[in-house]
Nucleic acid binder design. Structure first.
Lengths: 324, 324
DNA sequence: CGGCCGAAGACACATATGTGACGCAGGCGG
DNA sequence: CCGCCTGCGTCACATATGTGTCTTCGGCCG
């Protein structure tokens, strides 16, 4: 119970810590003791509705984490085949969710779990952005004071959507109790001159240079199919989308637009994008790609071909497409 | 209902010993995707009941593991174990502060919060003294005109330290807008005759008798380890400390020195101490002990054994020691 | 060969859960 | 000072869940 500390009363210290404690307690009673929500509400003097809401909040924010131990056989088979076919270090395949539901949350959950397991103490982690990464953030095992570092590998978005890059990074940093470095610049600029000025500027340059120091990079990929979320959210305009496709791009990773063979495509946007160097990314010792959904298969293939993937975290549908 | 290829494979392979694969898949759909059991059953061609049973089996066998993140999670676990192990009505465990800092302020803060929540309007509250109680006083939610009563359950200290009993009581009374009753006598006298005379005197007798009317008693405990604050403050002389330890005492609550089994020890100081009767204390309907720090574990155990504790408010370190 | 037995399904029902409608109070800006 | 608006509590109801009972089915044993 993080009631107020020292002379500070609970109220003065703000509701946040108290709420977290209460939420944790509720989760314990509900998930561990199997109490009914009603009973918990009575026991703690709350309304059932409140308990109910806190429980779903807890699930959303990752306060409770549900892990499934045993290997899911078919997925394990796919994992083995992916590793073998593409020469990966490791593959994680999760069952595809029902048609119409969002694959990113389940792939992200797997990614969060993977990072929790594999990020060393004092490790330095690079991330980019996207719904998958956002979901990963919600599924990290909490750390305290291990001296981790989180580096955001892309610029920000001016319009704050639910999956803003800065928020992604902040969520990671909060969960890992990490120092966080942000690229204080937009994802891409309107002119090349501005891009050049920004990447030369001290704060941006310093953060982008940190890619050389990373232990681990967790990246998602943007596809350029008609189902692209980037298109849906307006992060990529329809005109840009069309011209990228015409230029032969199948998707984007960390600001790099790749053709099916994993080569960067020639497109003006490249000169206006703020991004780490591709070669620098290729020097990160452990590179993890988290992307799911069958429409992501081409960009995943491209990313692998580009040498950006040591570890692939994906879903059944994408895995099957990749192996076809 | 569209069934994914992987699922068909799983079904057609018809594992007679419905291996962990199916169970894991069901768990995945249920916990990760939030599908309804009915939907899962339809999707996999099973009955809902079967899905239901596999889910509860999975929980029992640990195939799914639910963990609660956040710093307070282990505390909630400890609370539950304390309640169960010692037959308490309630336990509150706060995270232990960093080594070297004072645990009493955080335990006291929790105690203050607890009292604020649970002391009924017009309720009568007994307290003793100590740093923990002092901290509790600082963390009470203010009340106005609810007709509360505060009764100090011990004598005073002539030398005014920061944690003078009278000041403790006054702080409580001020915060609760309560009428306050003080034991107008020292904590212990130099002779038994004086003690006897004092407890027979009208004001002292009347206040001590009020213990029978209390709704709630909030008590801290003095330990007799080398780290005892009472020793450090000189409230207990080193000679007294040594002889109490030799007599088998592990600590003191409200003037009662207890051995590890919770029995009063035989020691001359007992006859010179001004204190409520142990049996009277045991008749207080709700008895709360607030004490933290690992060195308090023995006296907490003694207090519980003595039947003085309905509600224990402590810290992680002490809780762990208690459960060992 | 026939009956026994256990596993698993169908059905039913009592709870538990999630969610929307409504209304109240407290904070805030006009 | 007043009205609006947000947040929360209450109520109500549609689903979802857990569990019992009865039945069926298939294997096993006498």
């Amino acid at each position: 119970m993080a009631v107020g500390v020292g002379q500070v009363t609970a109220l003065e210290s703000g509701e946040a810590p108290f709420d977290a404690a209460l939420a944790a307690r509720i989760c314990w009673y509900y998930f561990k003791e199997g109490q009914t929500q009603d009973a918990i509400a009575q026991r703690l003097g709350l309304t059932r509705k409140r308990v109910n809401r806190m429980l779903s909040d807890a699930r959303d924010t990752g306060l409770v984490q549900i892990t499934i131990a045993g290997p899911v056989a078919p997925c394990v088979a796919l994992e083995c085949r992916l590793v073998e076919r593409f020469g990966l270090r490791e593959a994680v395949v999760v069952p595809s969710p029902a048609e119409g539901t969002d694959v990113r949350s389940v792939v992200g959950a797997a990614a969060g779990w993977w990072i929790s397991e594999r990020l060393p103490p004092s490790g330095s982690l690079g991330i980019n952005w996207g719904g998958t990464i956002h979901a990963a953030a919600q599924n990290l095992a909490r750390r305290v004071g291990q001296g981790n570092t989180v580096v955001l590998l892309c610029g920000g978005l001016a319009e704050s959507t639910a999956i803003n890059p800065y928020d992604n990074a902040a969520s990671f940093a909060r969960a890992l109790d990490a120092t966080c470095y942000y690229v204080t610049a937009p994802m891409y600029t309107e002119t090349q001159a501005l891009r050049d000025a920004l990447v030369e500027s001290d704060p941006v340059r310093r953060v982008l240079a940190m890619v050389e120091t990373l232990d681990l990079a967790l990246m998602s990929a943007i596809d350029l199919t008609a189902r692209s979320k980037a298109l849906e959210y307006g992060v990529i305009s329809r005109d840009l989308w069309r011209s990228l496709r015409e230029a032969g791009a199948v998707g984007e990773i960390c600001g790099h637009y790749l053709d099916p063979a994993g080569r960067p495509v020639d497109h003006p946007i490249a000169d206006r994008t703020i991004r780490p160097h591709l070669d620098a990314l290729r020097r990160v010792p452990q590179r993890v790609l988290a992307a799911g959904g069958r429409h992501k298969a081409p960009v995943i293939r491209a990313a692998i071909a580009a040498g950006l993937v040591h570890v692939l975290i994906t879903d059944e549908a994408a895995a099957q497409n990749l192996l076809r």
